[in-house]
Design a protein around this nucleic acid. Structure first.
Lengths: 143, 143
DNA sequence: AGGCTGAGTCCAGAGTCCATACTCAGGACT
DNA sequence: AGTCCTGAGTATGGACTCTGGACTCAGCCT
């Protein structure tokens, strides 16, 4: 199953946080470590996995007067995870509405408006959160 | 951080699978165990957590001539996770395009069309996966 | 030569995961 | 009345993973 497989990659407390930080432009190991709070060992491992999965790309960066070091940049596939992050962010904002405001919101580069993930049908209709039921199907082969 | 918190609940290989199966109408312990493949101990724990988080609700069901047993049904908050699932499913279909077709797709109850998660700005513009860059900001407080 | 820094690795204790076996409640069968 | 059956778990213990702190390593700079 495709989603099962995706979850064996992303089903982890840190992975999506790393992706989010990468989307925000954080590229360096220690910066990622700071912003995500992941322990170094785990971060090293997750970066490896994400690179292997084609979500991040490892490059070199050279600060003037320093030896080259690796940095991690989202690939197109990685950027394509933004809807997932936005959907999570929306959900968190709506349903675990604790005190503090959302830490990160997604905004439209053009107009500055808030960007959220919405369910849209190929027919053009937007599925309202209400009950215009989204039926889901198609489990054929054995597992 | 809100998302961090959400990930400490959903950042797990099984939780979202359970939610997906619940969305597909699977309600009973053993059925969930079968369809997700989660070990019983883990499933029991995850169900507890999801109920505590208000994503699932535990009810009783009674089959004729059997004692009442618990079943697990998505709450509105749980149904609200569908965009996350759809976003994942889309991503998986696009980027880990391995052989087998997607196991589950999300369809519009009205027209039967495929439903996907899209980034939509409050201004109404749909963010194309391309590069109409989605800037993301607002990290204020300390972590 | 020695120091500094970013990017890791090593290690040991703590915490999770998973498979297998066991329990428990109530209806059905004999 | 006792036994069996079933769904929904719990108990247990070995394997695996996380975590935080100490250690390493490469290259520039003095």
């Amino acid at each position: 199953m495709a989603v099962t497989e995706a979850l064996s990659l992303f089903g982890d407390r840190w992975v999506l946080l790393v992706v989010r930080e990468a989307a925000l432009g954080v590229r360096r190991f220690t910066d990622l470590q700071q912003t995500t709070g992941a322990p170094r060992t785990v971060l090293a491992d997750r970066l490896r996995r994400l690179v292997a999965a084609g979500v991040l790309e490892q490059r070199e960066y050279v600060l003037p007067g320093a030896r080259p070091r690796p940095e991690y940049v989202l690939t197109p596939a990685g950027r394509d995870l933004l809807p997932v992050l936005a959907a999570f962010s929306d959900w968190a904002a709506r349903h675990l509405a604790d005190d503090r405001p959302p830490d990160v919101t997604y905004r439209h580069a053009g107009c500055g408006g808030h960007v959220g993930a919405h369910l849209v049908c190929d027919c053009g209709a937007e599925i309202t959160p209400g009950d215009q039921l989204v039926a889901s199907v198609l489990r054929e082969g054995a597992r």
